[in-house]
């Protein structure tokens, strides 16, 4: 199975270790992983700012780079959601676009639904809080949302279930937004920071050592606030924990 690795631009620049963990994890699970060198940004920041129409170049580049693989996997729910739902329609590449949109997966979704690994076996003796990114949760439906009357589920928790000594706390507000929101983080700075502080408090009140999530953008925002206010908590992407834990 040939898997193309899509590493979102901010992970590439600021969190290369998340990219490495994703790559190593997929390889440990038997995938033949390629990182196409011509990849750039997915265009989400532009589109969410109201300039979807100006992302045709980015989209064309993305489609050309990622066509032809069996699967495309990214350690970000947010960017995957953008590719699936908010790319401008490319008339001359409509077949390629349809194919790419159906073959791209967020990491936990890929492990659960495509590789069907069930759970990851290993050990990770820590107490963590899991931050569900909204785009992953309500966009890609990676876990049940508290608003809906549905049987609770979580792809990340399924993956964690087989990891020994890993303790995941029950947050008071299990799926409230952290306030990152892309450009929202700067255009509504005061609100964004307040939302982040509140989210952080929920985790800290439950004495977590590590805040884990499937979207580095949310974690970057929460970590930025935690560091500014000297909060004793670490941040790790889902891929890092799984990659460290796996035996």
């Amino acid at each position: 199975m040939e898997v193309a690795l899509f590493i979102p631009c901010y992970i590439d620049q600021f969190y290369p270790h998340v990219g490495k963990a994703t790559l190593e994890l997929l390889e440990k699970l038997g995938c033949n992983v390629t990182y196409p060198m011509d990849q750039t940004c997915c265009g989400q920041p532009m589109a969410n700012s109201g300039f979807e129409r100006d992302t045709e170049g980015t989209t064309r580049q993305f489609l050309e780079t990622f066509k032809g693989f069996d699967y495309i996997v990214a350690p970000s729910g947010s960017c995957v959601l953008h590719i699936k739902e908010h790319q401008p329609k490319m008339d001359d590449l409509s077949e390629v676009q349809k194919e790419v949109q159906s073959k791209i997966f967020e990491l936990s979704e890929f492990l659960t639904d495509v590789l069907k690994v069930g759970t990851i076996k290993g050990s990770f003796p820590h107490r963590i809080g899991f931050h569900s990114s909204c785009h992953g949760q309500r966009g890609l439906r990676l876990s049940s949302s508290s608003e809906l009357n549905e049987t609770p589920f979580s792809k990340a928790m399924d993956l964690f279930a087989g990891i020994e000594d890993l303790e995941v706390v029950n947050l008071t507000r299990k799926d409230e937004c952290c306030g990152f929101g892309g450009t929202f983080a700067v255009s509504e700075e005061a609100l964004s920071v307040q939302m982040g502080k509140d989210r952080l408090s929920d985790h800290l009140e439950h004495q977590v050592e590590i805040i884990c999530g499937g979207d580095t953008s949310c974690l970057m925002h929460l970590q930025g606030i935690a560091e500014r206010t000297n909060k004793p908590v670490k941040f790790m992407h889902l891929a890092e924990i799984l990659n460290q834990a796996i035996s």
Binding site: C9, D12, T40, C41, M46, T55, Q61, G182, T183
Partner: peptide, 10 residues
């Protein structure tokens, strides 16, 4: 890497 994005808005 942000070659095709008209500068980075974010």
């Amino acid at each position: 890497t942000l070659k095709t994005l008209p500068n980075s808005v974010i």
